[in-house]
Design a protein around this nucleic acid. Sequence first.
DNA 1: CACCATTCAGTTGTGCACAACTGAATTGCG
DNA 2: CGCAATTCAGTTGTGCACAACTGAATGGTG
Lengths: 152, 152
Amino acid sequence: MAESTALDEMICFQLYAASRSMTGLYRPLLDPHGLTYPQYLVLRVLWHDGSTTVRDLGRTLQLDSGTLSPLLKRLEAQGHLVRTRGADDERTVLITLTGAGQALRDEIGDLTQALLCSINLTVDELTQLNQLLLRARGTSALDESPRKVTPA
Amino acid sequence: MAESTALDEMICFQLYAASRSMTGLYRPLLDPHGLTYPQYLVLRVLWHDGSTTVRDLGRTLQLDSGTLSPLLKRLEAQGHLVRTRGADDERTVLITLTGAGQALRDEIGDLTQALLCSINLTVDELTQLNQLLLRARGTSALDESPRKVTPA
DNA sequence: CACCATTCAGTTGTGCACAACTGAATTGCG
DNA sequence: CGCAATTCAGTTGTGCACAACTGAATGGTG
């Protein structure tokens, strides 16, 4: 027990450091397009799912409106998307990509190769890591959450 | 290849989400003491290593002075530590715990149990996760970095 | 129908992260 | 020694995160 006592707290730091390190890998890839990593995540959801609401975006990315509202406003200011009030429900806001937002997908291209080169893990280890992270968050494979797609 | 193409980008999101989820677990434990998770990390380093400099703290936690300076200023304002210019090198700033800062260690106590209950991973899985995260950051066991201790 | 609870996006305030920069102190090299 | 390059902490500006709140819209219940 003595050896494992601090392990969980150690892992929290590893997660914290690894997450920041990871967004650091994205930065040089996204900077030329004027995007941050959270903004890129939002775009990935939109590229995959098409129009969504702020609410669904929040569920998918586990972010609240306090984070998303200003972020979406910035993406709108950049001309990547538009926000329109829902016709049936005036409370909701529909997020829709513009042509420029669609085009950005091809401009950015596939970042996979660039990332794989920076991470020294095998595909097996990546799979293993993914599953451990999912479980650590209590999000097992048989999750009841309404979202269908892992965004990025 | 088609299956593994998006895996690395998926993992980046998992890391991002897991890291935020983890600090969310700490929040109710640290809030009563008026601490944030990064502040707690700084205190853990100080509790373990004693006085250090901003520079070493930055190396240990992988944070720059732009992040640490205001954070340390807040911890100083709370009376947990003091900052003094280095006697030999006027550029450096020595961070030293106050009595209150020392005492805080016992007041907070061991968060391990509370955290273990929130994470549904076994000790084996925690070990595995830790090693994968270390490797993913390129920080192998035989690291050349000057820091001696994994902070938390 | 009236009314209260809930949902939704947005705002405000605080505290990280990090790039870019400043200025003082130190180091190294001719 | 003299001076340019480097190191160090701090500041400024931008953009997340998140708690707490606001106000409008909706839904459910009597």
